[in-house]
Amino acid sequence: MTNAVDIENVSLVFGGEGNNPVLAVDTINIAIPKGQFVAIVGPSGCGKTTVLNMLAGLIPPTAGSVQRNGKEVDGPSRDVGYMLARSALSPWRTALRNIEMGLQIHGVDKATRRERAHELISLLHLDGFENSYPSQLSQGMRQRVAIARTLAIDPDLWLMDEPFGALDAQTRLTVQGEFINLWERSGESSVIFVTHDLEEAVLLADRVIVMTARPGRIKSDTIIDLPRPRVIDELRFDDKFKEAEHRIWKELRDEII
């Protein structure tokens, strides 16, 4: 079976000619089987967003090959959902119409996309806020709308760039729970989840990849062998969880301290 993602010997240099080039990503290799939930952690500026941008087809690698489902990535794809670190909602669209945006771009008819958007509204507990503009929503609600917008197109690869970074601890726990439910019921979707928060990475993911400080290389790659479905608010106090988090923390600590 082909992998969802194959990143082979990929390097990326910013600002090639002229002003001093920056090596952002240095010869990384990541293979992700279909249906896997991978978290990437690493110090700020180590190239996590850059890796997602390459997978989303926004920037080509300087060297190496980036493949999805066995095919070289050569531009944005309808099967990839990319959620940026900032919620980046259109201020002139209501919550509902923000969620519909991807479907609209894909040319899905109005009735179908409305139905899909309503479905996500209730899955993410946004009922009653369909017609609110982003400025009228709380931070957590905006983040939920951005998740819904990313998933409305039914992507088979979910690229999530610090999706919950701006949320307070309690809200984050709720939204994490909603997110993991959505993924668990989605079947074969693969997730690459970038985060600063190691606890979040271990709670949610099947596998945690630690990147080194710039230039970004793979420092460690650890399978998290915790059963699913996970009840994340309880799992936080589980000994196996704590042990896994501690093990990865030792790797990460060298990079950030």
Partner: peptide, 10 residues
């Protein structure tokens, strides 16, 4: 960011 979102959606 809005441009990036739209681009990534194709």
């Amino acid at each position: 960011d809005l441009d990036v979102v739209a681009t990534s959606m194709g």
